[in-house]
Design a protein around this nucleic acid. Structure first.
Length: 482
DNA sequence: ATGTTC
């Protein structure tokens, strides 16, 4: 298969590049890259752009396949990828969503200033580590029967609120209100349910974390005011997904689709792109199972928020104001959305894999409070660097209402482990005033800042493109990891 | 990402 090189990539704008449809016979649309020119060399080092070109061959794909500036290679599709296929007869592909269905991020905001809590950060980080189960295969306090897990899969974050593990007022500030109505637990295997049975309220491992930050800088005062953010404010960032349950759903349906593809006469350049028509039997089953796993993830982040609030209450006993939810965004999901294509509103199946929805002002489905300024877009950087809050600004779409999701890996986990001395890194971060509580040194090494791209440049790119506006920059003071 | 190469 022809490999893409720098010379094959044409400039559209300073921040937007394109591999034209003519590059390979099987491409149905061009492949577009959001990045500045100097970032392309790094992006060309792994298989991600060849994967992006493969995505451009998917039956029913509209406009273009896209990657965000935080792109890196993934299973079949690149991470940081967006693909919209025609509804209802275009394909749905689990590889375009990822193994961690509805991996996502939420931000809780306090009314405390960093100066007020400086001497309590270390004890707070230890208490959070104590309250929030983390690590590979790790379970939590809540053990669910199959009947109860079916309720979680149907109700999403509402389940947590009904059981006293969350606040009613949170629900309005979760993408899709923390519940996709198309979920059907009947299409989630018993194996998946078994794996998820004790994983509600757990963060897992890898790049998942709970982090205490403070707002170092405000870029847009007006939007920050609407979001209730101000300089010095202490906030909590939570990053996790659907754990073993979502992983099993992905595994189950990738196998099903590989077997079903010949029936639909779908031929692909990479079997990891396994897909079926959205409106086929297998397509509908996967979509309903994916929605159920997404609901599990939203419920998980709600329960983790309750654990964070518990830890917070234990340390700041006099502080009576609860942590409020700014917003909760999914960055591994497929959604049926309406977007304007060539002047006409069209329904499409938007696959976002390591890409955040970034709806601008006026989009339906935003909470009233945010409808004039766009949704919060939460961009975690690598451990110990910084993170960003942006405001969605997409209008006439260039990326189907999508934005980047983080810094983006530049070293493989293996390469990072080879290069990083984790105990030394942990101590160096501590000297910088960042307390890291982690179950393993391996996790610290894999997530070292050196393993990631520069989040500042990623954010500058999406900002230049007009997809999202910079609102605030966050600095970490404590990190809990698996 | 993940009961860490079914």
């Amino acid at each position: 298969m022809k490999k893409v090189q720098k010379k094959d990539i044409k400039k559209v704008e300073d921040y937007l590049w394109e591999v034209p449809k003519s590059f390979r016979e099987d491409m149905l649309v061009p492949a577009r890259i959001l990045a500045f020119e100097h970032m392309l060399d790094d992006i060309l080092k792994d298989r991600s752009l060849n994967q992006l070109i493969n995505v451009a061959t998917l039956p029913g794909i509209k406009v273009a396949s896209f990657v965000m500036p935080d792109v890196h290679e993934g299973y079949g599709f690149p991470i940081g990828g967006v693909a919209a296929t025609q509804y209802p007869d275009g394909v749905i592909s689990p590889g375009g969503i990822g193994y961690d269905i509805n991996c996502g991020v939420r931000l809780l905001v306090s009314e405390l200033q960093i100066e007020q809590i400086k001497d309590k950060v270390e004890v707070l980080s230890k208490e959070m580590y104590h309250q929030i189960p983390s690590g590979m295969g790790k379970g939590g306090q809540i053990k669910l029967s199959i009947e109860e897990i079916d309720k979680v899969l149907t109700q999403g974050a509402e389940w947590a609120v009904a059981r006293g593990y969350g606040l009613q007022e949170d629900l309005e500030y979760i993408e899709s209100n923390g519940k996709l109505d198309d979920a059907d637990s009947a299409f989630v295997s018993d194996m998946a349910k078994k794996r998820g049975a004790d994983q509600l309220g757990t963060i897992g491992s890898g790049n998942h974390f709970v982090e205490v930050d403070y707002i170092e800088e405000i870029y847009d005062e007006a939007i920050a005011k609407v979001y209730g953010l101000y300089k010095g404010q202490v906030v909590v960032l939570i990053h996790t997904g659907s754990r073993g349950l979502g992983h099993q759903v992905a595994t189950d349906y990738i196998r099903t689709m590989i077997n079903a593809m010949p029936k639909y006469n779908i031929k692909l350049p990479d079997r990891e792109l396994a897909c079926v028509p959205f409106n086929s039997e297998e397509g509908q089953q996967y979509f309903k199972a994916m929605c159920a796993a997404a609901n599990f993830a939203w419920c998980n982040r709600e329960v983790i928020s309750w654990e964070v609030r518990t830890a917070w209450g234990n340390i700041f006993r006099k502080e009576k104001k609860p942590l409020k939810l700014l917003y909760d965004v999914a960055h591994n999901i497929a959604k049926i959305e309406t977007h304007r294509i060539k002047g006409k509103d069209r329904k499409v199946i938007v696959h976002r894999k390591g890409a955040t929805r970034a709806f601008g002002p006026g989009f339906k489905e935003l909470p009233n409070r945010y409808s004039d300024v766009g949704q919060p877009v939460i961009i975690p950087g690598s451990m110990g660097t910084c993170s960003y809050i942006l405001a969605g600004a997409s209008s006439e779409n260039i990326t189907f209402g999508s934005c980047c999701h983080g810094a983006g890996r530049r070293l493989s986990r293996t390469a990072a482990k080879r290069q990083v001395n984790a105990p030394v890194l942990k101590e160096a971060l501590r000297e910088k005033g960042i307390f890291v509580e982690a179950g393993s040194f391996r996790g610290i090494a894999e997530e070292a800042p050196i393993a990631y791209k520069d989040v500042n440049m990623v954010v500058e790119t999406v900002s230049a493109s007009g997809i999202a506006k910079k609102v605030a920059k966050l600095k970490p003071v404590a990190v809990v990891k698996g």
